[in-house]
């Protein structure tokens, strides 16, 4: 597949700058962990799949209710190092969102606040490339909450499996499809997984979705990329 190098950031270099600028100790510590070089082959890159369950899509209006993450490589997903937090929203949850996540009022009652797990979360993400399905959500929510907690923005090196899927589908689309404006096909996590014969998992569980995202990236790379593709071709 054609690389998108024009968008690419040298995250290793970027982190050095961010570390120097950061005022908050937690952020300084996060940026100080060494990232892979931009030429590191994907097969050697440390990855961490992340999923947030939120009460809605708007980061200003909605709350994070759970966080799941699992470290992985292009060969293996390491379940033993998974993390899963249920966090207490600042406002009460609506009944609708309870239906989606299955996380109830009593679950969150005893849960820590997002602020309380923020540092642990940064620790689990440190020195790894974050892999999400649909990066705008995770990026925006984390950045917004980071601003509220530290007064500073949060920048993360991200690989977006939804973006990879979009490119894969576009690459497959013929001229006729484009002329007729045929739809691209669903980019939802479950639908993307089906294209690689990955099994159906329970949706809207942060950890399960993180595992599902990690498996999806493994499958996408097996199909669309050579193992020696440098990380700069995919991270944004």
């Amino acid at each position: 597949m054609r690389s998108q190098r024009n968008q690419s950031v040298d995250w290793q270099q970027q982190f050095q700058i961010l570390q120097a600028q950061a005022e908050d100790a937690r952020l300084r510590s996060y940026y100080s962990e060494e990232l892979p070089e931009q030429t590191t082959p994907l097969a050697d890159a440390p990855l961490v799949a992340l999923d947030l369950e939120t009460t809605g899509l708007d980061p200003d209006q909605s709350e994070i209710v759970s966080i799941g993450l699992v470290p992985f490589s292009t060969q293996r997903v390491y379940l033993r190092d998974y993390r899963h937090w249920v966090v207490k929203p600042r406002k009460p949850m609506s009944e609708d969102s309870i239906l989606i996540h299955g996380i109830t009022h009593s679950d969150v009652e005893s849960a820590p606040s997002f602020d309380a797990v923020f540092e642990q979360l940064l620790g689990a993400l440190a020195s790894k490339i974050v892999v999400v399905h649909c990066r705008s959500i995770e990026q925006e929510f984390l950045n917004r909450r980071c601003l509220q907690i530290t007064g500073e923005t949060l920048k993360l090196p991200i690989i977006d499996t939804m973006e990879i899927e979009r490119r894969a589908l576009e690459g497959r689309r013929g001229a006729l499809d484009k002329l007729l404006r045929r739809p691209l096909g669903s980019l939802r996590l479950a639908d993307a997984r089906k294209r690689y014969s990955l099994p159906a998992y329970q949706a809207h569980h942060a950890l399960t979705d993180a595992i599902a995202t990690a498996e999806l990236l493994q499958a996408q790379l097996a199909y669309h990329y050579r193992p020696d593709t440098p990380v700069r071709d995919l991270w944004v």
């Binding site: 060969q75 997903v77 390491y78 379940l79 033993r80 690689y196 595992i211 498996e215 097996a222 199909y223």
Partner: peptide, 8 residues
Amino acid sequence: QVEVAYYR
């Protein structure tokens, strides 16, 4: 302890 791996 499980590790997950995908093979096309």
